[in-house]
């Protein structure tokens, strides 16, 4: 097909291709130079949900919820997540209800106009550790623990970043001074992070008996936060797969129909004989 093109067309196409490649190169270079900073980029990890059609590991999400509940939630809120969101993902309805009832929520006003406390319901959102941002800052030496509801979407690298951050604490290299209330973590932008190393080996005991190593804890909480950011993840991939399947069929059918309708046009010979 390419051989049939005229010389001018070939040159044009070649120039267009070179221009596209060059432009993409420039954009990539600019992108890299913009995001370059004094911190280490998280290495991409082999998550079990990396594939085009790979679902999240729900057992890992359940363990990750346990890590969040027992460790992270002392400082970090997840205010866009409700207890009902756990149903059908990590917990059964009874379990979710039991979890919700462990917390007291302010409700009201009642008949006398007073606010009152009641145990949580499924429709309640995850309780917040601090009343407001100011209180959170005051309790954490000026650092604000971010809300974790959409953190995997809000940070470059997503769950890779979270895993790297959880496991990346180390002593600062020579020549870098870290203030007393800060910690050195090369994966954190700026490398000085206000959060103390949150996870250790055996910091909690998993209910399903998985050994709670630092790597396991970090992996589970990363998967949990990915799910929280993207609750539609599994459904999205399932639909994507079906979409590709049905469009394969449709493309085949429409190609046949096109050829069928065009065959009259395509197999017609028109000869023009100029009058002598």
């Amino acid at each position: 097909m390419f051989a049939r093109l005229s010389r001018g067309r070939k040159v044009l196409l070649g120039a267009l291709g070179a221009l596209t490649a060059g432009g993409a190169g420039v954009v990539t270079a600019l992108h890299v130079s913009v995001s370059a900073d004094e911190f280490v980029h998280p290495p991409p990890l082999k998550w079990s949900h990396n594939g085009l059609f790979s679902a999240l590991d729900h057992k890992s999400i359940r363990r990750g919820y346990q890590v969040y509940r027992q460790v992270c939630s002392t400082c970090h809120s997840m205010k866009y997540l409700a207890f009902r969101n756990l149903i059908g993902v990590t917990h059964t309805e009874e379990e979710a209800k039991a979890i919700a009832e462990e917390y007291m929520f302010m409700d009201g006003p009642d008949e006398e106009g007073n606010m009152f406390e009641r145990p949580g319901k499924l429709s309640d959102y995850f309780p917040r550790p601090y009343e407001n941002d100011e209180q959170a800052r005051a309790a954490n030496a000026g650092s604000l623990p971010p809300d974790l509801s959409y953190i995997a979407l809000a940070r470059h690298g997503g769950e890779d970043y979270i895993f790297a951050l959880m496991t990346g604490y180390c002593d600062p290299p020579a020549g870098i001074d870290i203030r007393d209330e800060l910690y050195y973590n090369p994966y954190f932008p700026g490398a000085a992070i206000g959060m103390a190393p949150p996870l250790y080996n055996e910091i909690l005991e998993y209910e399903d008996g998985t050994p709670a190593t630092l790597g396991q804890l970090a992996k589970d909480v990363s998967v949990f936060l990915r799910w929280a950011s993207e609750p539609e993840h599994d459904q999205r991939k399932r639909m994507g797969m079906k979409m590709l399947m049905i469009f394969t069929l449709l493309i085949g059918a429409s190609y046949y129909m096109k050829r069928h309708k065009w065959s009259v046009m395509k197999s017609r010979k028109i000869a023009y004989r100029p009058p002598n």
Binding site: S48, H49, S54, A55, L56, D57, H58, K59, R62, G88, V89, T90, T92, E95, D208, D234
Partner: peptide
């Protein structure tokens, strides 16, 4: 298995 229904069976 990875999905919720498998976890549910496990539970």
């Amino acid at each position: 298995s990875k999905q919720w229904k498998d976890l549910k069976q496990d539970l």
